[in-house]
Simulated scan of single mutants.
Amino acid sequence: MAKTSRKQQYLAGMRSGIPVILGFIPVGIAYAIMAQQAGFTVAETVFMSVAVFAGASQMMAVGMYAQGAGLIAMILATFILNLRHLIMSTCVVNRMRGDKLGLKLLAAFGVTDESFAIFTTEDEARCSVFYFLGLITVTYTSWVAGSAIGAVASGFLPEIVSASLGIALYAMFLGLLMPNVRQSFRLGVLVIITAVANTGLSQLIDSSWALIVSTLACAALGVCFVNDGVKEKTSNG
């Protein structure tokens, strides 16, 4: 196979990212409307997408802000939610052969669940930093565009439509969660335990800190509880 140029690799990555637009723009609009309802300005709403580029974390952060959570609690909660990006970024960077470290670090900023899935299932011969940069150019632009559209359009949408988009946060988390729960009964049990722990702690301490404590405690439990189940299933298989 002839060696492709950097431009061809970049354009190939852009083409691979086109289907993601159909998901990112609507969810970006939903995030922006949530942010507007929480009291963010248009500029703040869009800048958060430009600087953070993490839909689930942004939705959780604006939700916590609307409930009066403190800055430290919001930072910790979003940090915990995004810990998976450390693993995903490592996997993505390791697949990029012979590229400069600076470009790899730039590419790591654009790692999302979607770009990770596309890149790690792509043929290894196409896995260059320029392919990934083309991919995230499309995903990043569509996310910021969706946020901008939602921030501007929220002032024109009927109140009932804006209010109904509040379920987008729950829909996004369910979308991330359900495929894994279907593959692991123990993970499903752990999710229920975490929900119960969060509900109970919310009666005793501030809800934002209850979320953080229950997440950390149940994640520590899950390291043994879920992994043992996976090992058992593997050995039985």
Rank of each mutant, 00 (worst) to 15 (best):
A2E: 12
T4D: 11
S5Q: 04
Q9Y: 10
L11Q: 12
L11T: 13
M14N: 12
M14W: 08
R15Q: 12
S16V: 11
P19Y: 07
P19D: 09
P19V: 08
P19A: 11
I25A: 05
P26Y: 02
I29H: 09
I29M: 15
A35L: 09
A35V: 08
Q37S: 11
A38V: 11
G39V: 08
F40S: 06
E44H: 04
E44F: 05
V46G: 00
S49I: 09
V50I: 15
A54M: 03
A54Y: 00
G55I: 08
S57M: 10
A61Q: 02
V62C: 09
G68F: 11
G68Y: 04
A69K: 05
I75R: 00
A77W: 01
T78F: 05
T78D: 09
F79T: 14
I80F: 13
L81T: 07
H85L: 14
L86D: 01
M88L: 15
M88Q: 10
V92F: 11
R95M: 15
M96Y: 10
M96D: 10
R97A: 15
D99F: 08
K100G: 04
K100D: 13
G102K: 11
G102M: 12
L103S: 10
L103T: 08
K104G: 10
K104D: 09
L105N: 02
L106G: 09
A107Q: 11
A107I: 12
T112Y: 09
S115A: 14
S115T: 15
F119Y: 15
T121W: 04
A125S: 14
Y131W: 14
L133P: 04
G134P: 08
T137H: 03
T139M: 11
T139I: 13
T139K: 05
V144R: 01
A148F: 14
G150M: 06
G150I: 11
A151F: 02
V152T: 03
A153L: 13
A153H: 03
G155T: 07
L157A: 12
P158K: 01
P158S: 07
P158L: 06
A163R: 11
I167W: 04
I167R: 03
I167S: 11
Y170F: 15
A171N: 04
L174E: 01
L176V: 05
M178C: 07
M178Y: 07
R182A: 13
R186G: 10
V189E: 05
A195N: 00
A195G: 04
V196C: 08
G200F: 00
L201G: 00
Q203S: 02
I205N: 00
D206N: 05
D206E: 11
D206A: 14
S207I: 08
A210P: 03
A210Y: 01
L211K: 03
L211S: 03
S214R: 01
C218Y: 02
C218E: 05
A219K: 03
A220R: 01
L221W: 09
D228K: 12
G229R: 09
G229I: 12
V230T: 09
V230F: 10
T234F: 07
S235K: 14
N236S: 15
